[in-house]
């Protein structure tokens, strides 16, 4: 638990040190469309690097799909509470943008999406709705656990991308996008903690179960 806390703090510190220039605007701003960095994929990657890139984008896309549906599930249950509903809506809107960018990255790099898209949707909605039914604090604990795992996962991906030697402009841009998304996810984590995630019933157990589920899902989506 302490290790995880230290890791999270370290992620936050690194996140704060990163410039918040919006790398994702290369994909969301129509005036920047047609750029080599956003329309082509590197041809000079080794088979191992290509596999890493495809696995990373496949997992990221599946993760953003699941995150969207988690917030959807939470919003369905908690939208009656105006303040919490607004908070969830705000985070959900950010996840929608993340998913739109990941969809464009999947097409750009010609990556096979996971076969488990619909499973991610159903599991995400179920997780969001069930934790929201347990109360606002449990919903926030769910967000805290999910965003912790995703933040760590994005951090690992940045290290993998650093090892790629290609000079293709799409890779530095991808690193910028992942840094930006990592910071967004850690911001969600902070919001969850500030909104009493740790007051949730059986917080440690809930965090462990949700976190372990996320890690298993990441490994499955890399392959399937």
């Amino acid at each position: 638990m302490l290790g995880r806390y230290v890791c999270r703090c370290s992620l936050r510190r690194q996140g704060l040190s990163v410039s918040r220039g919006l790398a994702s605007s290369a994909y969301t701003n129509p005036t920047k469309a047609g750029d080599e960095a956003t329309t082509t994929t590197p041809e000079d990657l080794t088979p191992h690097q290509r596999k890493l890139l495809e696995g990373a984008l496949r997992v990221d896309q599946a993760g953003e799909i699941a995150a969207n549906w988690i917030y959807h599930g939470q919003h369905v249950v908690l939208s009656r509470d105006r303040a919490t509903g607004e908070l969830i809506k705000e985070m959900w809107e950010q996840e929608k943008k993340h998913l739109a960018v990941m969809d464009k990255l999947q097409v750009q790099h010609n990556v096979r999406p996971t076969l488990l898209t619909d499973v991610a949707k159903v599991a995400g909605f179920g997780l969001g709705a069930v934790t929201a039914l347990m109360g606002k604090e449990a919903a926030m604990a769910c967000t805290e656990a999910v965003e912790t795992v995703i933040g760590e996962h994005y951090e690992d991906q940045l290290k993998e991308l650093d090892e790629m030697t290609t000079k293709h402009p799409s890779i530095p841009l991808l690193k910028g996008v992942i840094k930006e998304f990592k910071d967004d996810e850690l911001e969600h984590l902070d919001i969850a903690v500030e909104n009493h995630a740790q007051r949730a019933p059986a917080h440690a157990l809930l965090s462990a179960v949700v976190g372990a589920g996320c890690m298993v899902a990441i490994e499955i989506c890399k392959r399937v």
Binding site: V107, R112, P113, D118
Partner: peptide, 9 residues
Amino acid sequence: DKSLHLSWY
């Protein structure tokens, strides 16, 4: 082609 998710398949 810009198919996503299951429509990709």
